[in-house]
Design a protein around this nucleic acid. Structure first.
Length: 590
RNA sequence: GGUCCCGUGGUGUAGCCUGGCCCAACACGCGGCCCUGUCAAGGCCGAGAACGCCGGUUCGAAUCCGGUCGGGACCGCCA
């Protein structure tokens, strides 16, 4: 039995009429007329109707009575033109049918936990539990194929541009900062651990030292951080690195690649070059480092209009070194109280104090005429518009206004669907302030500072710009990259500014620093997130949809029931003893 | 670490706000019978959930309250 060479169910056309064929596939539907039985037989290439006639083939007909949805069968029969008037124009194979002579059930199926046919919404937990059935559904099959095509175009494109794909290790070592690592215990080295790569960052830089010059890899990356709709614990990056490049070279390579994907997969021609927006401006005008440019609703800094304000919330924020930001909602004066309450809740949920609005809000009577006029001018608010205002520490006010902007656009239908607004976020800053107010890197510690900003590095480090860039489209961060430091002294200096002591530097980055002493080409690169790109191409806002076997938000594989327990013997071999979490401590009892 | 939403037969929903008419309704699916041209086939009959779980309030709870488990969205986090 080999159905491998058999014609695909979905391939049959009128040209095949008269052929005797053997078909293999799944029973998609059975229509039993008592006499005739019709079966829609499905494989990856489509569906064809098979007819069982009790007088022409009594044995096959008898077996066909037992067929149920998703049985896997082998059918032998003749391709025939359908009787006049019974063609099905909704089916690619609709002009023909297969008159069955022989039927064999290769594998029966129990009643399904949810319909594989059609596009009905099913609870995601059930889909994940039976992912192999979920993946049979037409929508998921389309996405699997789409992702395959993205990979195929990617390999072709980078090969044509002289890149080599080099594989890098999965078992590597933990990095001091960045995301939380997944660790793998070492059997041969008690008490030591490998880390799974958060990205092949150092490896690809070492490949530049190795003279590869142009490297790419479709690389799996793993980060043990909390999940989101567009974030999975294990995800795939198109990792790439180039020697002797400037950012313009990186931009050109990436724009060319994305342009080709959109052309070949969506038949869409993206305009080039893509616009650029500095990180500073993105945060100010859009309240996020990944702005969705399919709508306006730009945020304004209201500081200038409120310099002398006596309104307590604004005064307090400004005096504490914070900001007051606002945006105008077109036609927002008619906004329902309910909707405003929801926005306030959104702001609170983001850790903000709340939201003020104008006019009609509680602050109207405390704001002077001049202040109100100033706010209207800065936000560009017209007579029918409502101004939403947040006052807070800069970073939090940005987060709040960014979320408000997004929510207002969504609710009021201001998003221009069907647009692809790619933008480079460039330049970015070398350093940022973390939650505790400490200095940390903006992109990663290997990022090259602007030469002309170096004099600022000790006095005003936050003003040092970096050769770092992100690709953003429609509110998604699709790629992140930079030109790298290739000078040992400079790299050590940046590590020191970041507060790493000599010993840590030596133990974690020693090999890279040493490599920098043997002739390093200036280099840079970028790492697009393939999952998110496939999300956009597939038109979904859920990253799990584009991963064949994803985990839930709590990182559980509902199908394999991972993570699972292991034998005591296995643990002993790895020199591991488990200390169960105490009550109230983080961790789940099983 | 935090905030919010959801959890009713196999699936999708209704009922829940305004407790008793609900020993829970509808559609699809499932089982049986009838039916030789259907393709969301059709017709008739039937089975299937004490409403995630635990506890409370009440004369009475799917409906109210608390906890817990599971799923999801978001803030923090994610170089």
């Amino acid at each position: 039995m080999s159905g491998f060479r058999a014609p695909a169910c979905g391939s049959l056309r009128t040209a095949d009429v008269g052929r005797e064929v053997e078909l293999y596939g799944w029973v998609s539907r059975r229509r039993d007329h008592g006499g005739l039985i019709f079966v829609d037989l499905r494989d990856r290439w489509g569906t064809v109707q098979v007819v069982f006639n009790p007088t022409a083939a009594p044995e096959a007909h008898r077996i066909a009575e037992s067929l149920r949805a998703e049985y896997v069968v082998r059918v032998r029969g003749a391709v025939e033109r359908r009787p006049r008037g019974s063609e099905n124009p909704g089916l690619a194979t609709g002009e023909v049918e297969v008159l069955a002579r022989e039927l064999e059930v290769l594998s029966p199926s129990k009643a399904l936990p949810f319909p594989v046919e059609g596009e009905q919404e099913v609870d995601e937990a059930v889909r994940l539990r039976y992912r192999y059935l979920d993946l049979r559904r037409p929508r998921m099959q389309r996405i699997l194929e789409l992702r395959h095509r993205v990979n195929k175009v990617t390999h072709a494109y980078f090969d044509e541009h002289g890149f080599w794909e080099v594989e890098t290790p999965l078992l590597t070592r933990a990095t001091p900062e960045g995301a939380r690592d997944f660790l793998v215990p070492s059997r041969l080295h008690p008490g030591r651990f490998y880390a799974l790569p958060q990205s092949p960052q150092q490896m690809k830089q070492l490949l530049m030292v190795a003279g590869v010059q142009r490297y790419y890899q479709i690389a799996r990356c793993l980060r043990d951080e909390d999940l989101r709709a567009d974030r999975a614990a294990e995800f795939t990056q198109l990792d790439l690195e180039m020697s002797f490049c400037e950012e313009e070279d990186v931009f050109e390579v990436v724009e060319g690649w994305i342009g080709r994907l959109w052309r070949e997969i969506l038949d869409v021609e993206l305009p080039r070059p893509w616009p650029r927006l500095s990180m500073e401006e993105a945060l100010l005008r859009y309240g996020t480092d990944k702005p969705d440019l399919r709508y306006g609703l730009e945020i304004a800094d209201l500081g200038p209009a409120l310099a002398g304000t006596r309104v307590q919330v604004f005064r307090a924020a400004l005096d504490a070194g914070g900001v007051v930001r606002g945006l105008a909602v077109p036609g927002g004066r008619t906004m329902a109280r309910r909707e405003l309450d929801d926005l306030v809740a959104l702001a609170r949920g983001a850790g903000g104090g709340g939201l003020a609005w104008l006019p009609g809000g509680p602050l109207d009577k405390f704001l002077s005429e001049a202040e109100q006029a100033g706010i209207r001018r800065l936000t560009g608010a017209g007579p029918d518009d409502l101004v939403l205002i947040a006052a807070d520490r800069r970073r939090r006010a940005e987060t709040v206004m960014g979320l408000v902007r997004q929510e207002v656009a969504r609710r009021r239908g201001l998003v221009c669907e069907g647009q692809w607004r790619f933008v480079w976020i460039y330049p970015m800053f070398l350093f940022e302030e973390d939650a505790e107010g400490n200095l940390t890197y903006g992109h990663h510690p290997f990022t090259r500072p602007f030469e002309e900003d170096l004099p600022l590095i000790d006095e005003r480090p936050y003003e040092v710009r970096a050769h770092a860039y992100d690709v953003v489209c429609n509110g998604y961060e699709l790629a992140s990259g930079s030109l790298r430091i290739y000078d040992r002294a400079m790299q050590e200096r940046v590590f020191e500014i970041l507060g790493l002591d000599r010993q840590t530097i030596q133990s974690r980055f020693g090999p890279l620093l040493e490599a920098f002493e043997y002739g390093v080409p200036p280099h840079g690169g970028i790492a697009p997130g393939l999952d998110r790109i496939v999300m956009l191409l597939a038109g979904t806002d859920n990253i799990r949809d584009v991963i064949a076997f994803p985990k839930t938000q709590s990182m559980v594989d509902l199908m394999m029931d991972a993570p699972g327990e292991v034998d005591e013997a296995q643990l002993r071999e790895l020199h591991i003893r488990v200390e169960p979490p105490a009550r109230g401590e983080r961790g789940r009892a099983r």
